Simulated scan of single mutants.
Amino acid sequence: MEEQPELNDIKTVDDKEKLSSHPVDSSQQLETSFTNDVDSDAAFSASCLTTAELQQHWRAVKQEFRSVKLLFEIPTARIIDRTTSKYVVYQIVVLRSGSYDWERVAIERRYSDFLHLHQELLLDFCEEMEDLVMPRKRMTGNFSEENISERRVALQDYLTQLYSLRYIRQSPTFQAFFTHQELKTAYDLLRGGRFSLALEGLQKVLLLQDKLSSHDPTVVIPTLCAILVCQRDLEDFNAAFETGRQALPTVRRYELRHYQAPLLEALVDLGYSLGLPVAQLQEELTRVRNYPHGHMSQMSIKELVVQEFV
C-alpha cells in the first residue's frame, strides 16, 4: 500500500509578465477611461475602489459569454525512492488554451492522489463517469520507463476527460485535487510564522485557482485574504493594501459577509499606516458592523485566515 501523499511545493514553469486583456464590446471605452487611475501609484481615494469594482464587473460579464478552456499536460514523472517506500510522482501543468499562457504552473501528484480523486468523484457523479476509465495500477513493472510513460499519457487523458464534463470541472472535489495539498502546506507555514514561504505558495495557488475557478470568483477570496496577512506581517503594506483592494469588489458583489468586516478593517488600518484617505472605507466598515441582518464576523482578518485547514 502506498503511503499518504507527500505535500509538494508548486513549481512555476514559466513566470513571465501576464498579458492584459481588454473588452471588445461597448464597455471598452468606459473601462479604458479608468485604467490610468487604477494603475497610477498616486494617492489612493475611494473612487479607485469603485473603479476596481467596475472593472471586475465588466470582466465577470464578459466571462459569462467566454468560457475559459484548459489543457492538462503531464510532461514528466520521477521516481521517489525512500527507505520505507518507493513511488512515482507525475508533474501536472495546467494551461489556458487558445493563446500562449505565460503563467504555467506545475504541481506533482502520485497515482494514489488520482485514485482518491476518482473515488471521491464517483460518489457524486457515478452516472456521468460511467464511460470514463481510471488508468489501472499494474501489479508488476510499475517503475519501468515504458510503464511510467504509458501511465503518464493515460492520466493526462483522464484529466482531460474529467474537465470535459461541466459539473465535474466545476465541483470542489476536482478543483481541490489541484490546490488542496499546496494550500494546506501554505497555511501551516503561515500559522508557523514563516510568512515568506507561505506567501510564495499562496501566490502560486492563486494562479491555479484563477484558471480552474473562472465560474466562481469567490473561490480566490480566502487565498487573497491569506496573502494580505502574509504581506502585512512582512511589512509590505503597499502590496497588502493592493491585495485587499483586489478582493473587496468580489466580497461586496457576492455579499461575502463573513469576510467583509475583517477585510474592511484591514484596509482601513493599512490605509492609515500608508497615509491614504480612508474615510469612506471607515464609513462602510461602520455600516457593515451595524448591519441588522446576517452574520458579521467579529474576528480580525488574521484570526479568520488561521482557521483555514485546521
Rank of each mutant, 00 (worst) to 15 (best):
residue 209 Q to F: 02
residue 227 I to P: 00
residue 182 E to C: 09
residue 182 E to S: 09
residue 33 S to H: 04
residue 81 D to S: 09
residue 150 E to R: 15
residue 64 E to H: 10
residue 295 H to M: 15
residue 309 F to E: 13
residue 48 C to L: 10
residue 104 R to I: 10
residue 267 L to C: 00
residue 252 R to Y: 12
residue 260 Q to W: 11
residue 245 R to H: 09
residue 129 M to S: 04
residue 206 L to D: 06
residue 159 L to G: 12
residue 170 Q to H: 05
residue 98 G to T: 02
residue 177 F to V: 08
residue 75 P to M: 00
residue 8 N to P: 04
residue 219 V to L: 05
residue 301 I to H: 07
residue 74 I to M: 13
residue 184 K to N: 06
residue 220 V to Y: 01
residue 2 E to A: 14
residue 106 A to K: 05
residue 46 A to D: 12
residue 302 K to C: 12
residue 304 L to K: 01
residue 41 D to C: 08
residue 141 G to P: 14
residue 239 A to K: 13
residue 23 P to T: 03
residue 116 H to V: 13
residue 50 T to I: 15
residue 93 V to Q: 03
residue 255 E to P: 03
residue 276 L to G: 00
residue 57 H to Y: 10
residue 71 L to C: 12
residue 306 V to F: 00
residue 124 D to Q: 14
residue 266 A to L: 09
residue 16 K to L: 09
residue 172 P to G: 00
residue 24 V to R: 15
residue 262 P to N: 04
residue 176 A to W: 00
residue 10 I to Q: 04
residue 59 R to K: 14
residue 194 R to C: 08
residue 91 Q to G: 07
residue 64 E to S: 00
residue 142 N to K: 06
residue 203 Q to M: 14
residue 198 A to M: 13
residue 263 L to Y: 01
residue 227 I to S: 02
residue 85 S to W: 02
residue 172 P to N: 02
residue 43 A to T: 14
residue 108 E to R: 02
residue 193 G to M: 08
residue 297 S to K: 13
residue 203 Q to S: 15
residue 179 T to C: 06
residue 15 D to W: 07
residue 129 M to D: 07
residue 165 L to S: 00
residue 143 F to C: 03
residue 13 V to A: 03
residue 281 L to Y: 14
residue 107 I to G: 10
residue 163 Y to N: 15
residue 302 K to N: 04
residue 306 V to G: 01
residue 246 Q to N: 06
residue 5 P to W: 07
residue 271 G to E: 01
residue 225 C to K: 07
residue 129 M to W: 14
residue 281 L to C: 08
residue 57 H to W: 14
residue 198 A to C: 09
residue 112 S to R: 13
residue 117 L to P: 08
residue 124 D to F: 10
residue 86 K to A: 11
residue 107 I to V: 13
residue 15 D to E: 08
residue 95 L to M: 03
residue 174 F to I: 07
residue 293 H to P: 01
residue 55 Q to P: 00
residue 74 I to L: 10
residue 145 E to T: 08
residue 114 F to H: 01
residue 59 R to Q: 11
residue 54 L to E: 05
residue 70 L to I: 03
residue 217 P to R: 11
residue 28 Q to W: 11
residue 155 L to H: 03
residue 157 D to L: 12
residue 185 T to G: 08
residue 39 D to I: 10
residue 256 L to S: 09
residue 110 R to F: 06
residue 138 R to H: 14
residue 215 H to P: 09
residue 60 A to F: 09
residue 149 S to D: 11
residue 35 T to K: 12
residue 12 T to I: 15
residue 277 P to Q: 07
residue 263 L to V: 01
residue 298 Q to T: 14
residue 144 S to A: 01
residue 119 Q to F: 08
residue 184 K to D: 06
residue 300 S to P: 01
residue 125 F to S: 02
residue 274 L to E: 00
residue 199 L to H: 04
residue 37 D to A: 15
residue 75 P to C: 01
residue 233 D to P: 05
residue 247 A to K: 08
residue 236 D to N: 14
residue 169 R to F: 04
residue 222 P to R: 00
residue 121 L to Y: 09
residue 235 E to V: 12
residue 65 F to D: 12
residue 52 A to G: 06
residue 203 Q to W: 10
residue 27 S to F: 09
residue 56 Q to P: 02
residue 179 T to Y: 01
residue 149 S to H: 05
residue 302 K to D: 03
residue 5 P to N: 11
